[in-house]
């Protein structure tokens, strides 16, 4: 019943509707757009280096003659996948670990939070830098896992402390006295009551992961050439922004649109899940 009611409320929310529409359009652009462009993202046009947007190259070309339209869309595909997966894994991990630690307390709490603290003090950048060369040739999914592994700890600490107060609430007691198993209580009563926090965290994580991936790629980890992501494109284009703005503006603009639409959906979802809002 809850999912039905939530969905109805989500669709009724104008903010969420625009966000969803924008996201669908962006996804369509990323995955269908390349079929309409005149160039493939691997092609290089040696007749046009750094040429501004024109009828031939819609969004211009790079210094080695790549079509900006084609590579930006290719990069966006990667970024979308990385951003969403990292956000999903990291927020999910934060919610589960934090809620479990807070709900069970005692040794489980100590062990889980000790693990979280340990990950917090480890220099994540260094570890990723050390591990990523070994993953060369492996799937980029490893990269997603690494990014997620180092971004859930602070949220999970917040989730834990909120769970501590939720645990004492009477509806949780009621569920316990009903004979509902602990993991079901966590998933059904605790996590939904933290959804405002988690949704905001997830939307921030989407943008955080896209930007974090860009930073790592800049230093040569993560997405490696010839493959591209929005991050690598922005990094490459940022120093030429005054002379050749199209190198920077198109990927950066798409990143902003992407994060914005995700945020809109997040806000809408939060309102839909929260019976307190009357939208």
């Amino acid at each position: 019943m809850r999912s039905k009611v939530t969905l109805a409320r989500l669709v009724r929310n104008p903010q969420a509707r625009y966000g969803l529409l924008a996201l669908v359009l962006l996804l369509a652009l990323a995955y269908l757009g390349p079929f309409f462009g005149p160039y493939d993202w691997t092609e290089k046009d040696f007749m046009a280096f750094l040429s501004p947007p024109s009828a031939d190259h819609w969004w211009g070309t790079t210094q080695i003659g790549q079509d900006v339209y084609a590579i930006t869309l290719r990069g966006m595909q990667k970024s979308i996948v990385i951003g969403f997966l990292v956000a999903l894994v990291s927020t999910g991990l934060a919610a589960l670990v934090g809620a479990a630690a807070g709900y069970f307390g005692g040794w489980a709490d100590k062990a889980l939070m000790w693990g979280a603290d340990l990950l917090l003090v480890l220099p994540s950048f260094l570890i990723i830098a050390i591990i990523s060369p070994r993953l060369k040739g492996g799937s980029w999914l490893w990269f997603v896992l690494l990014l997620a592994l180092f971004s859930w700890m602070i949220t999970s600490r917040v989730v834990r402390s909120m769970t501590l107060s939720l645990r004492e609430r009477e509806f949780v007691l009621a569920a316990r006295y009903m004979g509902i198993p602990a993991w079901k209580i966590i998933l059904r009563h605790i996590v939904p009551n933290l959804s405002s926090l988690l949704i905001i965290d997830a939307t921030i994580n989407v943008s955080g992961a896209i930007i974090g991936e860009a930073a790592l790629s800049f230093f040569g980890f993560g997405i490696q050439p010839p493959d591209v992501s929005l991050g690598t494109l922005i990094a490459a284009g940022s120093d030429k922004v005054t002379g050749y703005p199209w190198l920077f503006l198109f990927p950066a603009g798409l990143l902003v649109l992407l994060v914005l639409s995700v945020n809109l959906i997040g806000d809408g979802l939060r309102d839909a899940l929260d019976p307190g809002s009357n939208k």
Binding site: E170, L173, Y177, I180, P192, P275
Partner: peptide, 24 residues
């Protein structure tokens, strides 16, 4: 063996429609 709590607001999960609360 069932229980009814004192504070009727705290005893019902605010994020659940009444139907789900009763179905639980």
């Amino acid at each position: 063996l069932q229980i009814v709590f004192q504070d009727p607001m705290a005893a019902l999960d605010p994020r659940m429609p009444v139907g789900d609360i009763l179905a639980e």
